[in-house]
Design a protein around this nucleic acid. Structure first.
Length: 425
RNA sequence: AAGAAUUCGUCGACUGAA
């Protein structure tokens, strides 16, 4: 009973949903599983791995079994929707729970705010923050951090800075997470100097409060920022600092470094880091491999890239949409459309449904080859699969017409783009 | 009064005279 919910929770945290579900099922067979605790833990486990649909199914399932969801169940489910990028469902659950007589608590508000923040809807996040105050709940450190992060993700750095001041004067002390969010916000807006200034400021403040230091997430944020900006020297310097701080280069640091080298057209350096990390006992994950493979593929070393892809599969790891889309894209860009189609078949056969990005890469490939008609059919095909073309899709098709000198049709496509709710820019 | 479940920051994919 109690042991089962704890086990489900721990497995969920480790990212092993399969095992969590097994424990859940077994506990239920033994007649000690079907309680709120187990259901909530499982819903949370699904949420953590981004499987919001399954979380919602479990929720329906528990209700059907007559197990009444409580505050924590709702919180877990709202968080699952948040992580799954479905803020609107999160919001309707927020209403539902009140209908059933449950009072939202701080965690409920924070989770809902996070749902909007992740989705880039910082205005909504802000209004939840205020609603929280109006409901008589006092915003805590999580609330401030969540809203600051929402502002940062929405590129509203001035608002983030202002809220940082507000929280301090309200007696809530910012922590590493607060500063990391802001640093990342600057990093993603291409404001490296501001990010660095925030980083330094944080270290100054932390010097005065013993026991608190920038952690690896914070360093990795800086590291990746320099990597993305192609400032290799500085990225390396961050790595050294991390090591002298006793944090070491962790999996995320290596992934960022490998990506940096790959994008800088230095895939051999990336491969060196790849070896190095393993010597240090790190197990490469899908992100590591994608960065590595992408580096080789973008530089035109397809054979190398595919060799690593084989190795990846032999290592028993499952390729995902991103990895397949990456491979499809680089093959398409180099005019290897047959190979790209082969990969598409393979992914479908492996039960990985292509998404908008996958299709965009194919459409782009046809466009580059001057096969506008095929580009258009591919767009229709994606629609028939229930996928909605986005701005990138339309841009690719418009560009394809443009390249062929078919300005009329390019314009028509731009019109359709508006009709279908995408704004051309 | 209980060994149970819930909230914050970092890494990989697509378009553009960028």
């Amino acid at each position: 009973g109690k042991l089962a919910s704890t086990a489900i929770s721990v497995l969920g945290r480790l990212g092993n949903v399969k095992a969590a579900k097994r424990v859940f099922d077994r506990a239920r067979l033994n007649g000690m599983g079907g309680n709120v605790f187990a259901f909530s833990a499982l819903i949370s486990a699904y949420g953590r791995s981004g499987r919001c649909k399954e979380a919602l199914e479990m929720f329906e399932c528990m209700k059907a079994e007559g197990c009444k969801p409580n505050l924590i169940t709702y919180n877990a489910l709202i968080d699952a929707c948040s992580k799954g990028g479905m803020p609107d469902i999160a919001r309707s659950l927020f209403s539902d729970m009140q209908q059933s007589g449950l009072e939202p608590d701080k965690i409920t508000f924070n989770s809902l705010m996070g749902a909007y923040g992740r989705a880039g809807q910082w205005q909504e996040a802000e209004s939840v923050f205020h609603l929280m105050g109006l409901s008589g709940l006092c915003q805590d450190l999580h609330s401030y951090n969540t809203l600051i992060d929402a502002f940062c993700k929405g590129g509203q750095l001035a608002l983030a800075e202002r809220l940082l001041d507000t929280m301090t004067s309200s007696g809530v002390q910012p922590n590493v997470i607060t500063y990391s969010s802001i640093i990342d916000g600057y990093a993603k807006s291409g404001k490296e100097e501001e990010a660095l200034a925030t980083f330094s400021k944080m270290r100054e403040i932390m010097k005065r409060s013993p026991g608190i230091h920038p952690d690896s997430v914070c360093f990795n944020t800086m590291l990746d920022m320099y990597g993305k900006a192609g400032r290799i020297e500085e990225a390396m310097a961050v790595r050294s600092e991390m090591e002298s701080a006793g944090l070491g280069t962790d999996l995320v640091s290596f992934n960022a470094l490998i990506d940096m080298m790959g994008k800088a057209g230095r895939p051999r350096e990336a491969a060196r880091l790849f070896e190095q990390m393993q010597r240090q006992g790190h197990h490469p994950n899908v992100l590591t491999w994608s960065a590595l493979i992408g580096g080789f593929a973008r530089s035109g070393f397809h054979t190398e890239a595919m060799k690593y892809f084989q190795e990846f599969k032999q290592a028993g790891l499952q390729p995902d949409v991103v990895l397949y889309s990456l491979l499809i894209d680089v093959h398409g860009k180099h005019g290897l459309v047959q190979e790209a189609m082969g990969l598409l078949k393979e992914m479908v056969a492996n039960g990985i449904p292509p998404n908008v990005v996958t299709y965009n890469s194919l459409i782009d490939a046809y466009g580059r080859m001057g096969q506008v008609e095929r580009a258009v059919t591919t767009m229709d095909e994606m629609k028939s699969k229930g996928l909605t073309p986005n701005a990138v899709t339309f841009n690719c098709v418009i560009d394809a017409f443009g390249k062929e000198g078919r300005a009329e049709e390019a314009l028509q496509m731009a019109h359709r783009m508006r009709e279908e709710g995408q704004s051309p820019d």
